[in-house]
């Protein structure tokens, strides 16, 4: 589903006299559709940077990042903005650590949006969104409110619901269980395992070791890669 070859990333800070911070170099790996891969390594080893590169949120300075999109390989490292948008709509889902809240948009709509963008009928999208919110224990009385005032854990669960609303062949998860209580953590782990068993290729960062062990079939250690 995903083939990375020779990916590299260096940040150039022009406001600090062009200071260059190399983060990743020569990263190569593949992820197939029956795998859940954990990115591991100490903080600063580039896990989050790599995740963002896989979503084309950060640009790749070098290398090829091939993604299986509707039967074809698309190189996200040099795809047009329009192609990246299509790949994000249909193929790659991303659950970030923090929900970027849009003022005034109700929770139910935040969750249903990825389906609406794919052209799903509004009633169907709302039903799917309610199922997910229910499963993730977000009380129904909150669904009409914007998540702006929600607690951290609630916002994260809304974010996860949104990430799972539309089925994606590839799912990127950045610390999906970080601020959850035990019960909700288990719900999220179950959801990820179900997606994996249904054939979604998963790449994630899990600092929570039991969650990582429950979900992942393999690890990629970025510290090792840096040392090699």
């Amino acid at each position: 589903m995903l083939q990375a070859e020779g990916l590299a990333k260096t940040f150039t800070l022009h406001l600090k006299d062009g200071l260059r911070l190399p983060v990743l170099s020569d990263m190569s790996f593949t992820v197939t559709s029956d795998e859940a891969v954990a990115l591991t390594g100490p903080s600063g080893s580039g896990k989050s940077t790599l995740m963002r590169m896989l979503y084309a949120n950060y640009r790749c300075d070098a290398g090829v990042l091939n993604v299986r999109h509707q039967g074809d390989w698309v190189n996200l490292a040099d795809a047009s903005a329009r192609m990246v948008r299509t790949v994000r709509r249909e193929t790659i889902g991303y659950v970030s650590q923090f929900l970027r809240v849009i003022p005034r948009v109700p929770t139910l709509q935040v969750v249903a949006e990825p389906l609406i963008e794919r052209g799903a009928e509004e009633g169907h999208a709302s039903r799917r969104a309610s199922e997910l919110l229910e499963r993730l224990n977000i009380p129904a009385k909150l669904w009409d409110l914007s998540p702006v005032t929600f607690s951290g854990g609630e916002q994260q669960r809304v974010n996860i619901a949104r990430g799972f609303a539309a089925p994606y062949p590839i799912l990127l998860l950045d610390e999906p269980t970080a601020s959850l209580d035990a019960e909700n953590r288990q719900v999220v782990i179950n959801m990820i395992c179900e997606a994996r068993d249904a054939g979604t290729a998963i790449v994630g960062i899990f600092h929570d070791t039991p969650a990582r062990n429950a979900v992942c079939t393999r690890e990629i250690d970025l510290a090792e890669k840096a040392a090699a």
């Binding site: 150039t12 022009h14 406001l15 084309a56 949120n57 948008r85």
Partner: peptide, 21 residues
């Protein structure tokens, strides 16, 4: 120029970095 989130989260040009920061 580029995708909005790309330009804002990973600005390449000195001027864009200044604007974002």
């Amino acid at each position: 120029q580029g995708l909005t989130d790309q330009v804002l989260d990973d600005p390449q040009h000195a001027y864009t970095q200044l604007l974002v920061s």
